[in-house]
Design a protein around this nucleic acid. Sequence first.
DNA 1: CGCTGGCACTCCGGGACCCCGAGTGCCAGT
DNA 2: ACTGGCACTCGGGGTCCCGGAGTGCCAGCG
Lengths: 343, 343
Amino acid sequence: MVAEDRRLAVLRAIVEDYVATNEPVGSRALAERHGLGVSPATIRNDMAALEEEGLITAPHTSAGRVPTDRGYRLFVDKLSEVKPLSAPERAAIASFLDGAVDLDDVMTRTVRLLAQLTRQVALVQYPSLARSTVRHVELVTLTPSRVLLVLIADTGRVEQRVVELPRAAGDAFLARIRDQLGVRVTGVALPDVAAALEDLTAAFDPDERAVVATIAATLLETLVERHDERVVLAGAANLAAVPADFAGSFRPVLEALEEQMVLLRLLGEVSADLDADLPTVRIGRENELEGLGSTSVVSLAYGRGSRAMARLGVVGPTRMDYPGTMSSVRAVARYLGRMLADQ
Amino acid sequence: MVAEDRRLAVLRAIVEDYVATNEPVGSRALAERHGLGVSPATIRNDMAALEEEGLITAPHTSAGRVPTDRGYRLFVDKLSEVKPLSAPERAAIASFLDGAVDLDDVMTRTVRLLAQLTRQVALVQYPSLARSTVRHVELVTLTPSRVLLVLIADTGRVEQRVVELPRAAGDAFLARIRDQLGVRVTGVALPDVAAALEDLTAAFDPDERAVVATIAATLLETLVERHDERVVLAGAANLAAVPADFAGSFRPVLEALEEQMVLLRLLGEVSADLDADLPTVRIGRENELEGLGSTSVVSLAYGRGSRAMARLGVVGPTRMDYPGTMSSVRAVARYLGRMLADQ
DNA sequence: CGCTGGCACTCCGGGACCCCGAGTGCCAGT
DNA sequence: ACTGGCACTCGGGGTCCCGGAGTGCCAGCG
């Protein structure tokens, strides 16, 4: 089995060298730079075997080898360790995020930080409304028949919506609605709000119910909407770092990254718990999105305590420094979770 | 002066052809495609004169001519007319923007629309807080010594900030503060809020003043902050449409566009009034920003009635369709102004 | 049996070269 | 003032060629 081990060591060396140099790596360079203790000829045999298994491939007959998606996959799963961040990096995270004034600010800073740390495109999803509770509901009169409905979640997230009332409503009436809403939904988990509002209209006179129902409906709409799942992005310029990474132009990549839907799918489903300590890695074709066949996504959930709230991650070329990226993603996710817990 | 007129016609033809084909334009093609009624040789003389004046330039001894920044400038100022939009385009604007649920939604839709219409990078600045009035101020208790301060402007813009109080404050006390704030600032223009709060602390007992002062300070901070001038962006993928437009890589351009400060400077100062009906055009080096030497910016203020609230515009290669872009920018600015007036 | 050195082979990339076409500037003629 | 003609320039593309890097295979060795 010694031979088998060496083969894997060769794969690991190929991945590391290729990531570092961006050039197909040959047997001689490999034998020299890594202390494998065998001759290039032996390595060539190993490489032939690895190629047979579909883990590496040669761009041309007479070039070095390059890892395939499957090769990276094996590397990530079995051959790499997530290195802890350096002290300066930790310090950078702290100094970057401290001093944020509101949730928008936290999100913006986080995504920039992540882009800077990893030198890739960073994504951060807003804390999911579905996993929050209501902190406060407010109604603000705009005109007699229009009110602004403001919903504040415990994550600090604020949603607002203008409501057109079926008829004019006086301040006293609105105050009663506000009170009733407050009593019923404050502290309630957002998915449970619908149930909590079930009997809301019953608390009002029949001729008042149309107005109340309109407001309640808008509130529920606000909770349900896909709008919910906002994702912010930073570091698009990093795509241009090594143009060769994206065959032809990277226009399709840029285009894909402008679609919120795509970003959400890249980050993946938010799991219930925060148990997973290691980022999820999707490599190349593994994420089946148009135009993103030569990119990888490293993502992780963040949250308060053990409850996941949303995800964050980075998108980069399949030829990326997985261990480094994974550790940055993990560190930022942890720090962000801690920040939000403070609030 | 007929000769002079023809020279300008030649310049205009060069700009139009170059924009259409992205290739240096020669004297023969010019004589054929545009009904100038003179021979290529004559046009060559004109071109020599235009080159002498610094309006066009030849990439190589034996290539056609290309407009310089100054050439585009003359074209924009004197030789082009802003064409009205086509009916389908107008329809697209309306259908794209209608149905927006809140201010964020309006901004997002607008910027996407503009990017799509112009096929360039679009920028839209949020309605300036400095030009709004206060619609409502709200205080929400988080913990006894922390409150969330929410400010709603008449543009629909919502700002929130967590305030750490110097000591715990009861609900009744906070309600009094809220009332006092409401009385003093509701309907007040944001720049005048500081004055309106001048005597706020006087309305409270001496031992309450520290808390009140903290809240007032945070409110003022919220108004002043640069955060104020948010700009959203869309259509970055359009930069990649004609890679040759940005010599080498367009990394620097992407980088510049990630800086809020840069975006603000690109859009320019918001003037007091909405008098200017034509977009401002800054061509190439005219905007003195690092990395944006080969881009042009077409921008315009938008607002309610005659009051400017902020600006929007697009960034693209100097080689752009100025008349078309200008008309799109103008149309979107008008429509957006009308939408906000409705609110 | 696994490893090694040697060897013939392949193929990419870059440089040298050349030609063609497009476009110019200038000049003499109308 | 405009035009046709002409000599000139230059870049892009095509072809050719070579060197270097890397491979696969084979025979030999411990």
